[in-house]
C-alpha cells in the first residue's frame, strides 16, 4: 500500500488556493502581505510567483477595504478570496461583512449574490496577547446571510475551502494559528468537504463532546486518556458552524445521554450556547443523564503570560476533568 501523502494545514490550504486559481481565472486573492511575504502565516507563500500581482493582490492596511473589495468583485462576477491577517482585525471589516455582504442578497430581493470567502486565523497559544488571539466566530454565526466554517484538520481545511469558494454566499473561513503546522493526510486531487456536515471523529458511548477547531484535537487526546479509565468519549466536529448540521449531535446525545461542548472562544455568548440549546430543545432531551455543559474560554481577554494564556482556554487536562465529572455524575 502506498504511503498516504501528508501535508500541513497551511500547505493544504495553499494547495486548494492554487488549484482553484488554476481552474478558474475569476478566483483571486486579496489581503495584507499575502504577496512576496506569503501571508503572515505563510499560507499564500509562492502564489504570487505563479499567478502574479494582479491575482494575488497585496493591499494597504485597510480591512474594510479588503472586505468591500471582495463584495464588489463578487457582485460583478468574480470569486474573491480575502485574507484578514488576524481574526482580531476583522473587527475593522465588520460593517462591510455584516451590513453589506450578509444582507445584499436579501435586501435586493434575492437577485444578487456575493460569492466571496474571507479567510482569517483565530486563536491563542502563540503569546500574541489580547489583540492578536481572538476567537470571534460566533459574531458571524449570529448574522443571517453569512456562512461560517472552522476546519480542524488539513484534510478538512482543503476540502472545506474548496466548498466555500464554490459556494455562492459569503463565507467566513476561520483557521487556527496553532493548526497551520499540524500534519495530516491530504489527497492531491481536488475534493470537496461539503459545508454543513458535522463529522463524528471518534465514537464512544459515555459522553458526546462537540468540539471546534483546535479543540477537536484536544478532545481526541482527552478521549484517549479517558479510554484508559473506561470512559469512552464520542467526539463530534461540526466543521461548519453555520449552517449547523445538528442531527449527528442530537443522535449522539441520544446514545450517550451526556454532552459537553468545547470551544476556545469565550463561553459567555459563545457557540456552545447554541449547541446546548439545540440539544436541550431536541428529542435528545429525554435521553439526558446529566446537565449539558460547556467548556470554553474564560471571560477575559487573552493574557500575554504563557501560564495565564494556557489557562485562559480549554486544554486536554481540563477536558479530561470536565468529561470525567459529567460521566461520573460528579458535576
Amino acid at each position: 500500500m502506498p504511503e498516504l501523502r501528508e501535508l500541513t494545514y497551511a500547505e493544504a490550504l495553499r494547495e486548494c488556493l492554487r488549484q482553484l486559481m488554476e481552474e478558474d481565472e475569476r478566483v483571486f486573492l486579496i489581503g495584507e502581505d499575502i504577496g512576496v511575504y506569503g501571508g503572515a502565516f505563510g499560507v499564500t507563500a509562492g502564489l504570487i510567483e505563479q499567478f502574479g500581482p494582479e491575482r494575488v493582490i497585496d493591499t494597504p492596511i485597510s480591512e474594510a477595504g479588503i472586505a468591500g473589495a471582495c463584495i464588489g468583485a463578487a457582485l460583478t462576477g468574480m470569486r474573491p478570496i480575502g485574507e484578514i491577517q488576524f481574526m482580531d482585525f476583522v473587527t475593522l471589516s465588520m460593517e462591510q461583512l455584516v451590513l453589506q455582504a450578509a444582507k445584499v442578497r436579501f435586501m435586493f430581493g434575492g437577485k444578487a449574490s456575493v460569492p466571496m470567502v474571507l479567510r482569517m486565523p483565530s486563536g491563542s497559544g502563540t503569546g500574541a496577547a489580547a489583540q492578536h488571539s481572538e476567537s470571534l466566530e460566533n459574531w458571524f454565526v449570529h448574522v443571517p446571510g453569512l456562512k461560517v466554517v472552522m476546519p480542524s484538520t488539513p484534510y478538512d481545511a482543503k476540502g472545506l475551502l474548496r466548498a466555500a469558494v464554490l459556494d455562492d454566499n459569503p463565507v467566513i473561513f476561520v483557521e487556527h494559528k496553532l493548526l497551520y503546522k499540524t500534519k495530516g493526510h491530504v489527497p492531491e486531487a481536488p475534493y470537496i468537504v461539503p459545508l454543513g456536515q458535522s463529522k463524528v471523529v471518534r465514537e464512544g458511548s459515555h459522553l458526546t463532546v462537540v468540539a471546534t477547531s483546535v479543540m477537536v484535537g484536544r478532545a481526541l487526546q482527552a478521549a484517549e486518556q479517558l479510554a484508559e479509565e473506561g470512559i469512552e468519549l464520542e467526539v463530534i466536529d461540526p466543521r461548519t458552524l453555520k449552517p449547523l448540521d445538528d442531527a449527528p449531535i442530537i443522535e449522539s446525545v441520544k446514545k450517550t445521554g451526556r454532552a459537553l461542548v468545547v470551544h476556545e472562544a469565550v463561553e459567555m455568548g459563545g457557540f456552545g450556547g447554541e449547541v446546548v440549546a439545540r440539544i436541550a430543545a431536541s428529542e435528545a432531551f429525554d435521553y439526558l443523564e446529566a446537565p449539558i455543559r460547556r467548556l470554553a474560554g474564560l471571560d477575559i481577554p487573552i493574557p500575554y503570560n504563557r501560564r495565564l494564556e494556557y489557562h485562559a482556554v480549554p486544554q486536554v487536562e481540563s477536558i479530561v476533568r470536565e468529561a470525567r465529572k459529567l460521566v461520573r455524575g460528579e458535576y
Binding site: I57, A73, E95
Partner: peptide, 22 residues
C-alpha cells in the same frame, strides 16, 4: 443598489473597480 450605511458603498466600489480591471 442603494446603501443605508452612508459610506458603505465606497469599499464595494473598489471591488467593482478591481473586477472591471481584472
Amino acid at each position: 443598489g442603494a446603501n443605508g450605511i452612508v459610506a458603505g458603498g465606497l469599499p464595494i466600489a473598489v471591488g467593482v473597480g478591481l473586477s472591471i480591471k481584472m
